[in-house]
Amino acid sequence: MLADGYHDVAPGKIATIVTSLEMHAPPPSRAEADGASWTLRRLEQPGVAEYRDLYSAVGRDWLWFSRLLMPDAELAATIGADGVEVYRLEAPEGVGILELDFRTEGECELTFFGVSPGLVGGGAGRWMMNRAVQRAWAAPIKRFWVHTCSLDHPGALAFYVRSGFTPFRRQVEIADDPRLLGLAPRDSASHVPLI
């Protein structure tokens, strides 16, 4: 546990507050935008390059980096594992990613969830979350959970709470800045200064 007060973060590192949230029963479905032209397609056996392209299209501005650091073989094994489902939201304005992990008995983790910049605020996230909740609770689970962090879109935490999740844990994560590793463009995540 960290002591109260300020803690220096070394140059070349980023620090974020991670909040984990969960639900133990399916919530009511939330209203969706009318006339949407979105489709959700399961990627049955996504290739590493295809997956990373989708992951980066959605997560670049929020410094998603964990799947960029994974060796190709490990990533291929993870996204191709029994119990892991990867979906691509397709729309004229952009793409979205929905990844569900059912590998822990009785649980589903919403591993990755988000939309590219052209879809933020237009209802695609709500539409995709309704399908995520339906798919998760169609399985014999007792818990559906997700984590978000302070690097994500400023509305992410409130979005998850509105979707029926309740916060249960807070952590601090410190990692190498992916922009300095060449894994993300240096001008991405302008809300996080390079130090």
Rank of each mutant, 00 (worst) to 15 (best):
A33P: 04
C149W: 01
Y51C: 00
W62L: 09
R170D: 10
T148H: 00
A158N: 07
P178N: 03
S66M: 02
R126G: 11
M128S: 07
G123W: 05
E85Q: 12
V84I: 14
Y6A: 15
P26T: 10
L89D: 00
F65R: 02
E99Q: 13
L63Q: 12
C149F: 04
P46S: 08
Y87A: 00
I97P: 01
G80M: 03
L181W: 08
W62C: 08
S163P: 10
F159W: 02
F168T: 02
P11I: 01
L43P: 13
A184W: 03
P26G: 06
L183G: 01
C108P: 12
I174Q: 10
D72Q: 13
A57C: 14
R131D: 03
T78S: 13
D82C: 00
P193E: 09
T19A: 01
G35E: 02
E85R: 12
Y6F: 15
K142H: 13
G47N: 09
D4H: 08
Y55H: 14
V18D: 06
V95P: 09
D176C: 02
M23Q: 15
R60P: 00
T19P: 02
S190E: 14
L151Q: 01
R41P: 00
V161I: 15
P11A: 12
L151H: 13
L181I: 03
P154A: 01
E99I: 04
D4K: 05
P11N: 02
Y51V: 02
M70N: 03
V86R: 07
A76K: 14
T166R: 12
T16S: 14
I141H: 09
V146C: 09
V172Y: 10
V161E: 15
Q171T: 11
R42S: 01
S37H: 07
L157A: 10
Q134R: 11
G123Y: 05
C149H: 07
P140I: 04
A81V: 08
V146P: 00
S66R: 01
D177R: 03
G182R: 08
S66C: 05
E85H: 11
L98D: 05
G121P: 09
G125R: 12
A3Q: 14
W38D: 15
I17P: 04
A36E: 09
L43V: 08
L43S: 12
W137L: 07
R179T: 04
T19M: 00
G59Y: 03
C149Y: 05
Y51N: 07
L110H: 07
L157R: 12
S20A: 13
L40Q: 08
D187Q: 11
A15S: 13
G123C: 09
T148E: 08
H147I: 04
T16V: 11
F113Q: 08
W62H: 14
M23E: 14
D187Y: 04
M70R: 08
T148Q: 11
G83R: 09
I97D: 02
E93Y: 05
D72C: 08
E173M: 14
T78K: 11
D187A: 12
R186D: 01
P71V: 12
L183W: 02
P178W: 05
E107H: 05
A73H: 12
L21P: 07
L75K: 10
P167K: 06
A156F: 04
S37T: 13
A57G: 15
F159E: 06
P11M: 01
G80Q: 05
I141R: 04
H147N: 14
D101V: 00
L21H: 11
Q45H: 15
L54I: 10
M1L: 13
T39W: 08
H147A: 10
W145P: 06
N130V: 00
L75G: 07
